[in-house]
């Protein structure tokens, strides 16, 4: 499974519905993620990709779209 597919799978689990956001679609403005599900996203990314996201990186804009999540994961690889 490639990285984008994994991210989409995580987002579907958190949203608890079969969402299919465009890569550049805002996950917050579209209502796909709320204030609390973003913390679930952090936990899932840490588990799935074997990383620890430091507090200073925990900024909503870094995780506001699939493309931004991909960019963040790339910066950590």
């Amino acid at each position: 499974m490639d990285k984008r597919t994994k991210i989409t799978s995580i987002l579907r689990q958190i949203a608890e519905k079969p969402i299919d956001p465009a890569p550049d679609e805002s996950l917050f403005e579209s209502g796909l993620l709320d204030s609390f599900s973003i913390q679930d996203l952090m936990n899932a990314l840490e588990t799935e990709f074997g990383i620890s996201i430091p507090d200073n990186d925990r900024r909503p804009m870094k995780f506001d779209s699939i493309e931004r999540i991909e960019a963040y994961l790339k910066s950590r690889s």
């Binding site: 204030s35 913390q39 900024r59 909503p60």
Partner: peptide, 13 residues
Amino acid sequence: MDGRTIILQAAPK
């Protein structure tokens, strides 16, 4: 209050 940032910081801290 930027609720998303606050939750992201409070939940682990």
